[in-house]
């Protein structure tokens, strides 16, 4: 038997069984501090988040989304909001020291059928359909990608170019996108004051309601400009696909636009897509955090206003 070494093993009674390492979470702690100072996080959520800065910031983000129409947004859109230290969730490129990125991306595309609405508005004024379409799609497109007949036409042109080199090009059948676009969409949109005058003068209550909702949506969407992605961050998306559409707009169910979307959607994820919206911010700078959250608020309110409008679109949900 060996001689005792004289060394006493330390007692482990009372030693904490769990340690948390925050070395990688400096940005999360800074963000939690800014959110608390700015009143964007509720201190009462600190205990619920088990004193975790990440969980606390997550709760604050969810609360902010709920305050700006999150429930309404979810009725028509499946959007994910993420705060990350990396601009591209599919790779670790483009990360910049000390910055965080607020990213918005769709999980799947929402769907709006506008044919019956445009037909009804055309009875009020021939240029009202194109005006309504521009207000609705333009407002949503300010914040997220919308797939509509223009994307379908681009796709069609590409297919035709591909077919041109083929020997059996006559055997190809292309979807009739041009044929499914209402002719009224080729007219010039009305000015806002003309729209208000025409909508105000019609007896058709639903038309009036729809036009007012579209004007409101347009106004909400303009409260902030979607921030441009900086050149440094853009480098992370050099080989990326375009952003995933957050909304598909067609004229009737199963029309040529929907067909092109279904076909094109097979390749959407062949390369990692660019985010629909990206805001770079410094978690240690209160003004920068405030700006990022204000931008997110406008995006949420725009999508909520679009959901409100979608709920009254004739034929949007039960058209056969």
């Amino acid at each position: 038997m060996g001689r005792p070494s004289g060394v006493v093993m330390p007692k482990l009674d009372g030693v904490a069984a769990e340690y948390r390492m925050w070395a990688e979470d400096k940005l999360a702690i800074e963000l939690a501090e800014s959110l608390t100072t700015l009143g964007l996080a509720e201190p009462s959520a600190w205990e619920e988040a088990k004193r975790s800065p990440t969980g606390y910031a997550h709760t604050a983000l969810n609360r902010w989304i709920a305050l700006h129409g999150g429930e309404l947004v979810r009725q028509n859109f499946a959007l994910n909001v993420t705060i990350s230290d990396c601009p591209d969730p599919y790779s670790s490129e483009g990360e910049r020291r000390g910055l965080l990125y607020l990213l918005v991306d769709p999980e799947s595309a929402g769907y709006m059928i506008l044919g019956p609405t445009l037909e009804m508005l055309g009875d009020v004024h021939p240029r009202l359909p194109v005006t309504f379409y521009s207000l609705l799609v333009g407002a949503i497109q300010r914040w997220v990608r919308v797939y509509d007949h223009r994307d379908a036409l681009d796709r069609l042109e590409m297919w035709r170019e591909w077919a041109e080199g083929e020997a059996d090009q006559d055997e190809y059948e292309f979807p009739d996108v041009e044929g499914c676009v209402p002719p009224a969409l080729k007219l010039k949109p009305l000015s806002p004051w003309q729209v208000r005058r025409i909508a105000g003068g019609t007896d058709n209550q639903l038309s009036r309601q729809l036009v007012q909702a579209a004007l409101d949506l347009d106004s909400v969407s303009r409260r902030f400009r979607r921030p441009e992605i900086s050149e440094e961050t853009r480098e992370a998306f050099m080989d990326s696909n375009p952003p995933l559409p957050a909304l598909l707009v067609s004229f009737t169910r199963q029309d040529a636009v929907t067909g092109c979307f279904d076909e094109e959607s097979q390749t959407f994820l062949e390369a990692s897509p660019e985010p629909n919206m990206l805001v770079e911010f410094d978690p240690n700078n209160h003004a920068s955090v405030r700006r990022a959250f204000d931008i997110l608020a406008v995006l949420c309110e725009t999508m909520a206003a679009a959901s409100r409008l979608a709920a009254i679109l004739p034929g949007n949900t039960n058209e056969a």
Binding site: W22, I29, E33, P43, S44, P53, Y56
Partner: peptide, 17 residues
């Protein structure tokens, strides 16, 4: 008191930092 005050949360975050 179970709910944290703003000052208490900020103090804890400062210690974490």
């Amino acid at each position: 008191k179970l709910t944290s005050t703003r000052e208490a949360v900020l103090a804890e975050l400062a210690l974490m930092l």
